[in-house]
Structure formats: C-alpha cells, structure tokens
Design a protein around this nucleic acid. Structure first.
Length: 267
DNA sequence: TACTCTGTTGAATA
DNA sequence: TTATTCAACAGAGT
C-alpha cells in the first residue's frame, strides 16, 4: 500500500545511487503496462550514461533527475503493488520486475506485480507538466485550513472518506491513512463534506497534517506505528477502538473498505 | 474450480 | 459538474 510514507521511503532507498552513473537501463518487457505513457526506447537511450542528480517525492509520486543539469526526469508512480529496491550490480530479473538501472555498485530495481504503477519520462530544462501540476504537499505551508474548507464546499456531496482519497487535494493519502485521519478527527466516514461545521473542518485539517507528519516520522523507526493508533487494530478480528474499546465497524464507504469507531465517530 | 478481496487511477456511466 | 461504478492486472485466500 504505497501511500505517502512508503513513497518517501522508496525515494530515500534509491538515493544511495545519487551521483553515480547509470551504466545500463534494462527493461524486462517494453510492452509492460507501466510504460504505457512513454516511449521505452527513448527512456533507455536518454538515461544510459547519465548520473542520478536529485530526487523528490510528492504524495504518491516520485521524480528522479539525471544528467549534469538534471534535465532528464524519471517519474515513478507505484500504483497499488509497486516497489523500489536496491540489489547487487549484477542482477537478474525476477518475475514482475520491469525496470533496472544498473550502476557500478548497485542496481536500482522497480517491480510491480499488478502493473498499476506508471513510469513517466521527460527531457527538459524546466519542470515537466506532469510534475509541476501536482497539488501542494500536505506538509507544506500552502496546505492551509482554508484549502480544506474550500474543498469541503466544492465537493460537499462526497462522503469524507471519498474526499480524503482525492489526490488532487490530499496527495499521498490512501485507504488506511484516510481511516486514521477520520478516527483522530472523530468524524464519521459517511458524513458529507458539506455538512461540516467550522470546528469540524479544523479537526479534519489538523488530523490530516498530523497523521501525515507521523507517518513520515515513523519511516526511520521500523514502521512502528503507535499501538494507540487505529492502524494497529483496524483489520484484526474483533478489533476494538484503542480510545474507548468499542467494537470497530467496517463497511464500504465511497467504494472503499472502511473501518471506524461507532462511538468516537457517530454518524 | 470458482469466487472474492485487495487498493489506485482513470474512464465510463448515472 | 459531480458522484458512483467498473476495468485494468496478478495473486492470495476461501
């Protein structure tokens, strides 16, 4: 479940290759769906011999820049089952691995069994549109309470669960994070966005920020989410709310499997 | 064997 | 225009 923190972790992993030259770009199958937005031949031709210069993550997307001016932009989206790894320099493909960037000391590997992920590419001295048009990160200063309030009005008919999953405004929030945010904010996932009062919008905004911040913090700590979080209990049999010990509810909301506490988050 | 579930995006549909 | 449903794909579980 590559959400914001998983994506940031993946980016940092590939960062070990920063400054090193790409000796070879290997694609297992150029017809793979993950290359559907680009010309694979161009990717191979352009990246071969270039050094990894820089990288950035925003929401569920990453970009790795290559070349002396960072003019080659490799965008990666992990989809649902995508994964980045670092392997030995001499590395043979396993099943479901699509892209390998071979460097002298390591291989940077992108695997994705279900191929919902996507590879993007551009050669440009300015930021390519697919990166420039991304919304501000939830942890940036541009992500304000007013942004959330405005979005609640614009999508007033959406249940909160669906609202939080909209990447155009909440980049990086996925299924479990959305549940965690609503649980923290004590808001019912089925509540329509337009029905929130001022105080509730503030709670939603604050919970969104803090859950994202904590998720990033926990990357370096072995993925240890606090037991006090809903996360640890959401799928266990007979799971109880870690705050009030009421039995957790589960249902499909906004088309997605959802877990909440009926007492803390009354409908 | 046949079915369901997973969780993200984007297209189709209401 | 906006909200919901479905398809894309592969694999694990019942």
């Amino acid at each position: 479940m590559p959400e914001l923190a998983e994506v940031e972790r993946s980016r940092r992993l590939w960062e070990v290759g920063r400054g090193a030259k790409v000796l070879e770009v290997i694609l297992r199958n150029r017809k793979s769906r993950i290359f559907r937005s680009i010309n694979p031949e161009e990717l191979v031709r352009s990246l071969t011999g270039q050094r990894l210069s820089d990288s950035e993550a925003l929401g569920k997307q990453m970009v790795f820049r290559f070349g002396n001016r960072g003019q080659f932009w490799l965008g990666l989206h992990l989809g649902m089952t995508g994964d980045l790894r670092v392997e030995k320099p001499r590395y043979s493909f396993l099943k479901h691995e699509h892209l390998v960037l071979r460097q002298s000391k390591r291989s940077l590997v992108f695997s994705d069994p279900r191929q919902f992920g996507r590879v993007l590419f551009a050669e440009s001295d300015v930021t390519p549109s697919w990166w420039a048009k991304l919304p501000p990160s939830i942890l940036s200063n541009q992500f304000k309470r007013s942004v959330v309030a405005e979005f609640c009005q614009r999508r007033k008919g959406s249940p909160l669960k669906g609202l939080l999953l909209m990447q155009e405004r909440f980049p990086g929030v996925g299924n479990w994070m959305a549940d965690e945010i609503l649980w923290r904010a004590r808001l019912n996932p089925k509540t329509r966005a337009g029905a929130l009062v001022e105080r509730e919008v503030t709670s939603l905004y604050r919970a969104t920020r803090s859950v994202c911040a904590k998720a990033i913090e926990v990357i370096d700590k072995d993925w240890q989410f606090p037991k006090s979080w809903l996360f640890a209990h959401r799928w266990e049999d007979g799971g109880k709310c870690p705050r009030c010990h009421t039995g957790l509810m589960r249902d499909v909301v906004g088309g997605r499997r959802t877990c909440w506490c009926p007492k803390c988050q009354p409908g």
